[in-house]
């Protein structure tokens, strides 16, 4: 090999080597191993791991109803959560790009919950739902606060939704604000002079011009809610009676609580396939939107 080739090899190893090494070791190899283990009866303890073919997948599709219950919960949660958090994020951004005196302080307030991790937020809200809400209910008599919060399926579901929206709306607000401040002022003024109402301007000028931000926010919210784990673990731990168990939590419990690692990796593989499909659809939609503009 010539000196130049050696020099190129040296640079390649120096610059790309470290990132590729850690990525392969930590993500690549475990991901491929997971595919293999999903066809085995690995329990995490025994030395021998036996090939069981499609048994794990058969188990998931026949008597693995808890997996589908978790999927159904995750889908419901994603739909409601994505719509609500985007709605709040968008409205906050829309109002806080107006010349309000306290707009910077309000932006800070709405964003702040986002920097706190889901695990700690879940514990804080557990207290608020159980003790705080009942205290408010006692003093005001409003039946909303006297519901058995986190105690039944319905309130547990909406409890997680409330915390999710409280946590994530501010992040989406930041992205929407960035989009809205990029809308050219002269376009807005022209629409105003032409006599367009506020609602018309919003619908026919602002929203079309911030579609890239809308797409980003939708994708982010889908990604967060579909893979939700920390908040789920600390707020309800999947209860009551597994009614609020997300797919991520279901996989975790299958592997590390039931010690069925083989079955857990099979569930994780299916989860990956669904997440990859959703992402592919997202990319398709973004690409087609870009062509239109």
């Amino acid at each position: 090999m010539s000196r130049k080739a050696w020099s190129q090899l040296g640079q390649q190893l120096f610059f790309v080597g470290p990132a590729t090494f850690f990525f392969t070791l930590i993500v690549g190899i475990p991901f491929l191993l997971g595919m293999y283990y999903s066809f085995t009866d690995w329990n995490g303890v025994a030395g021998t791991v036996a090939w069981v073919g499609l048994d794990n997948f058969k188990a998931i599709f026949t008597n693995g109803s808890d997996y589908f219950a978790a999927f159904w919960f995750t889908v419901k949660f994603t739909v409601v959560g994505v719509v609500l958090t985007n709605l709040f994020g968008f409205v906050f951004a829309y109002v806080l790009t107006k010349p309000l005196k306290l707009r910077n302080a309000l932006r800070t307030v709405f964003f702040m919950p986002n920097v706190i991790g889901g695990l700690l937020l879940g514990f804080i809200w557990q207290f608020i739902f159980v003790k705080g809400f009942s205290a408010i209910g006692e003093s005001t008599g409003w039946s909303f606060f006297n519901l058995p919060w986190l105690g039944d399926e319905m309130t547990a579901f909406w409890g997680i939704i409330i915390v999710f929206v409280w946590q994530t709306a501010g992040y989406l607000m930041v992205i929407y604000i960035a989009g809205m401040t990029n809308v050219p002022k002269d376009v807005l003024e022209a629409a105003e002079i032409d006599g367009a109402s506020k609602l018309q301007i919003l619908r026919t000028v602002i929203i079309p011009l911030i579609m890239p931000a809308v797409t980003v926010c939708l994708f982010l919210a889908i990604s967060w809610s579909f893979k939700m784990f920390d908040l789920n673990l600390s707020l309800t731990k999947g209860g009551p009676f597994k009614s609020t168990e997300s797919v991520a939590l279901n996989i975790y419990l299958e592997a590390f609580q039931n010690n069925r690692y083989g079955l857990g990796t099979a569930k994780a593989l299916l989860f990956f396939v669904v997440v990859a499909l959703i992402t592919l659809i997202q990319v398709r939609i973004t690409k087609s939107k870009e062509v239109e503009v």
């Binding site: 991901f31 995490g44 994780a268 989860f271």
Partner: peptide, 28 residues
Amino acid sequence: RTNQFLFMMFVAAMVIPFQSVMIPLVKV
């Protein structure tokens, strides 16, 4: 070519949920 492939791999890996790696990762 190598670097194009590596970059594709990194981008594609952003799709992988943590749950699909964590169980074998403990073993590794």
